[in-house]
């Protein structure tokens, strides 16, 4: 199990990865923008720290943190965001669809809530194969109103699937405050299916790790799914588009209050200052290389857009608009 240093390192890696990615959005090297994970780093870090390499995760549109915490190569992830052929998905997935099946990263997913069912299937596959692998599905507070997520919870409870439902409640579904969109409670949805659920501080990685560990142990022991609602705050925009078009759905006081507890500072304070500095420098070196690698990599051949549509090699009809 990772120690305090390793947890801090992952949080720092995600934090700085996101800040570097935002720079690349501004410079035009990442086209289409990203949904920054800034402020929510402790959740991906804590949950993934409770997993084995052969466990699997599904992620969200705000997924860079999950992908990195599960072990993806930051350089190939950055190349994916920049749409380069060296990316995790050869640049064909981008920010919202990065996947690395060899690491159990079954994909970020731009359809809110949709991946819950996919995680159930992956968990079920593990059960059918006689393994004790666990599947985690990350989702936001917006997803708890999606029907398919409730279908997934029902199935997971019914079949006692080894699934963790990890809700990252950052207070807003895009711009809609949770209170304006969620009737009842988030954990109440799990309770309706008999799924144990708890609400934890998503800003403290040690709290998240403890809760995730317990849930993972339950799942491995065959006791079925658990839901964790992790309270957090999105420090930056819903999407980098907001940097250009200021959407006024959070006032300054709200943002200041939300940012007053920073998962990086909370975990960083637990480290020896010199060690923390060493980690920060090492992370920066990794990210310097990631950015260099991404920007030095080839752009895809536009003609390749017609390729890789089917496993059989069938291509789109040439010459047809």
């Amino acid at each position: 199990m990772p120690d305090a240093v390793a947890l801090y390192r992952t949080i720092r890696l995600i934090r700085r990865f996101e800040e570097r990615a935002i720079e690349l959005v501004r410079s035009g090297d990442i086209v289409g923008g990203v949904h920054p994970y800034l402020g929510q780093e402790a959740i991906a870090t804590g949950v993934c720290a409770a997993l084995r390499p052969d466990d699997v995760i599904t992620s969200t549109h705000r997924g860079h943190g999950h992908v990195l915490a599960k072990g993806a190569d930051p350089a190939r992830m950055m190349a994916e965001l920049a749409g380069r052929v060296t990316g995790l998905n050869r640049g064909r997935g981008g920010s919202m669809h990065a996947a690395d099946f060899s690491l159990g990263i079954l994909g970020a997913n731009a359809i809110v809530g949709a991946a819950g069912a996919i995680a159930c299937g992956a968990a079920w596959a593990g059960m059918l194969a006689g393994s004790d692998r666990v599947a985690v599905t990350f989702f936001g507070d917006g997803a708890v109103n999606q029907g398919v997520l409730l279908e997934a919870m029902n199935l997971a409870a019914l079949r006692r699937l080894p699934v963790l439902f990890v809700c990252e409640n950052n207070g807003y579904a895009t711009t809609m405050p949770t209170a304006g969109a969620v009737a009842g409670t988030i954990t109440g949805r799990a309770a309706a299916f008999g799924i144990p659920a708890s609400t934890v501080d998503g800003m403290d990685v040690s709290v998240v790790l403890d809760a995730a560990r317990e849930a993972v142990e339950r799942a491995r022991a065959g006791a079925g799914p658990t839901m964790l609602e992790c309270l957090t705050y999105r420090f930056d925009a819903h999407h980098t588009f907001e940097h250009r078009v200021r959407l006024r759905y959070r006032d300054d006081a709200d943002v200041a209050a939300g940012r007053s507890r920073d998962p990086m500072q909370i975990q960083g304070a637990r480290l020896d200052p010199d060690e923390r500095t060493r980690i920060d420098v090492a992370v920066e070196t990794v990210l310097d290389e990631a950015v260099r690698f991404a920007l030095a990599s080839d752009h895809p051949d536009p003609a390749g857009a017609l390729d890789h549509l089917y496993a059989s090699g069938l291509r789109a009809r040439p010459g047809v608009a």
């Binding site: 299937g121 194969a129 279908e151 029902n154 199935l155």
Partner: peptide
């Protein structure tokens, strides 16, 4: 036999597929 939940059925099948079924 699955619950009567078509979206969940197909989504679950995607996960099963990704793990070799």
């Amino acid at each position: 036999d699955t619950p009567l939940a078509e979206s969940g059925i197909v989504g679950t099948a995607v996960g099963l597929c990704l793990r070799g079924y």
